[in-house]
Design a protein around this nucleic acid. Structure first.
Lengths: 221, 221, 221, 221
DNA sequence: AATGAATGAGCTTTCATTCAT
DNA sequence: CATGAATGAAAGCTCATTCAT
């Protein structure tokens, strides 16, 4: 009787059916509301209002609340992981790659703060049922990629070897996340216009992270 | 006709009215349930069951769900901030104090993981209405104390001066938090019995944090 | 294990056990609260607070809410009916007796407004279960007594014969009640000090009632 | 995302949005249940069942119980006051107008007894919070209109001048109300089929009221 | 007698989900 | 596709009643 599937998004051949504009609006709205209020606090009514769409339409495009939020998760993780992979597989030293990771996340944050919050904060709070198949693995994947960067940096003598890569990766992402949170909450008052302020955060964070991980003898880039 | 106030908890002199045992049980249960499911997902019925107490008793001691969770917040923050203050005002170098902070939080985590999760995770997710008067300030306070430690370390030449203390403090706490989250989610698989594993995390984290903040010339402790 | 019966109030012989002071306080408080908020709106907690007595004590003296409120009803009606009977069986013309009825109710109102409200207003609103054995009959009794006065006045040629006595009696009591309500609500603003104001109401009401009922030829008293 | 406002009910021009049928059903049901059981005794579940409507729909159209009952109040008072105004401003002597008032209320009672009970009985019992803005004023308004009729009758020499109009008006409405109550409770047993019985009540009441208020010299109509 | 903590059924309110249009 | 009224299960809150002290 209509869509309602996970939307593989592309057909296999010929005529590419474009994603309906309103479906997109709902998904975007869901990201914001979800980020703002969390899984249980996010009401379908809120999403519909935020998307400026009729109540019932949400159920036209998504089976139910869970499927909607799962889509949100999936989409955001897909983007993040793709980016991390690109950085990981690209050229450059471990230090450059870590700087790239910090930079990317903070850049995303500049244009879509809620997207970052969804990824970082909802990981542990969202019911397991929902994340089934998506989050724990994907979160692990994200941490894993960063850990890989670190591991190879250790192997190449660029980063200190006494740290467990996974643990270090988690710490780096956590540092990123909480710094952004501080920004959201106004702890770090913008001494400069927001745009530049965020760039300053980016630099400092990268510096701190690198200093924390770099091998004693290694040179600054 | 009964309690139901915010319970300033301490009198000024002589006859200290002891906190009713069941009130305490409810508060403890609330910490756990709250940590587990977040603000909106936490049902009064769950708290009551967890505390092995009748439904209605929760409302005997607390006005409503909000007041209960606010009490949880207040209590946890009070404990954490007192500990941070003690470390801040105690003796030792900045490095030792930062190590102390990491150690304390991870130690608390060993005995009461949910308490830590409430503090760290609920900060941004809990409705503003609820946190009014409690969280934003208290969170800021906690960050502020750590930032002070860092600032004095910078002034004493022990820590690098190019980092904004508040930002660095947030990053440190974030690194702590996400590492613990990783532990919870099983990302960092215990290579050793849990107890020792956590101690290993403590060491590595402290090492990383210190390396990230220490001034180039400073010696290892 | 204690009182808790309907309290026949007097023993049969010798040693008269006096009604406990606090039982009385509860009963009085109940009259006020009941009058103020009606059956469903009247909480045991309110009664206890109003009586400055511990919550549980109410249940020491009364089986349950119903028994308490039934006692209130019974007591008030007993008083009212006794007074009406006394007037009815006393000397005087029908006109004098009707004046007496108006006067009595308004006088009671002066000292215990809530008692009057209980009698007059709760009649139709209180659940049948509660009034069982008390109200419908007693209310009917009260109306009946006034109707008797009217009937005898009609038979004696003093009052007009075209009115159904019961109907007329109800109307008289209703006029009384609503006037008092008007007073409570401040519709009839006291042009004089409360005391005198009420006396003025008494006169006017009696005059109006008598004029409404008196036979065309009958003289003013 | 829907109705839920006080429903000003009438637009100014062209396309009149009709009141949803079910909203109306709920309001009607509420009048009955409210009349039957009073403010505190009236359960939303009862209203929904009586209106043959799903529980939740009540909350679709009304914010909460208070708003629902306030709407009931407002509607009933609006009707009554409009009718009283029409009588007041229409032609006829004061006596005819008073007869009209009695007749109107009793006629309404014939078709919608509960409506009358809501107006007359709930005035003093309903919590102040609820009536705020609606009842005290409107009740005063109703009494005021009747008082105006009386005042003008006094000025025209038709009615006795020694009675305070407001007081007399309250008494008249009270007589009406209690008579109807008596009818409800079966005090005045129908000597005739209900229909005629009520008409007999109407006549007797009007006669009594007029006799009570008419100036000594004035002729019978 | 007196107290007030403790219990839990019942009612209000919310909100995911369905359905007629 | 789009809409929003309609439904009802689940969660929050109240309060009569019991019970240990």
């Amino acid at each position: 009787m209509s869509p309602r599937q996970s939307r593989p998004s592309a057909g296999h051949a010929a005529v590419e059916i474009p994603e309906p504009e309103k479906r997109r609006a709902i998904l975007h709205a869901a990201v914001r509301v979800f980020a703002e209020r969390g899984y249980h606090g996010c009401r379908i009514a809120d999403v519909a209002r935020e998307a400026r769409v009729a109540y019932g339409l949400v159920y036209h495009y998504f089976q139910n609340k869970d499927e909607l939020l799962e889509s949100v998760f999936a989409e955001q993780w897909t983007i993040l992981i793709a980016a991390l992979r690109a950085i990981d597989e690209g050229p450059g030293s471990a230090a450059e790659k870590l700087t790239g990771v910090c930079g990317f996340i903070i850049d995303v944050y500049k244009t879509a703060p809620s997207a970052v919050r969804v990824l970082m904060l909802e990981v542990t709070r969202t019911p397991n049922a929902l994340r089934a198949g998506s989050t724990p693995q994907t979160f692990a994947t994200a941490v894993g990629i960063v850990a890989d960067v670190i591991r190879r940096g250790q192997e190449g003598g660029e980063l200190r070897r006494d740290l467990e890569p996974v643990l270090a990766a988690a710490a780096v992402l956590g540092a990123l996340e909480m710094t952004l949170t501080g920004l959201v909450m106004g702890l770090v008052r913008p001494a400069a216009p927001p745009e530049e302020e965020i760039d300053r955060v980016k630099e400092q964070l990268a510096a701190m992270v690198l200093a924390g991980l770099r091998a004693p003898g290694a040179r600054d880039p």
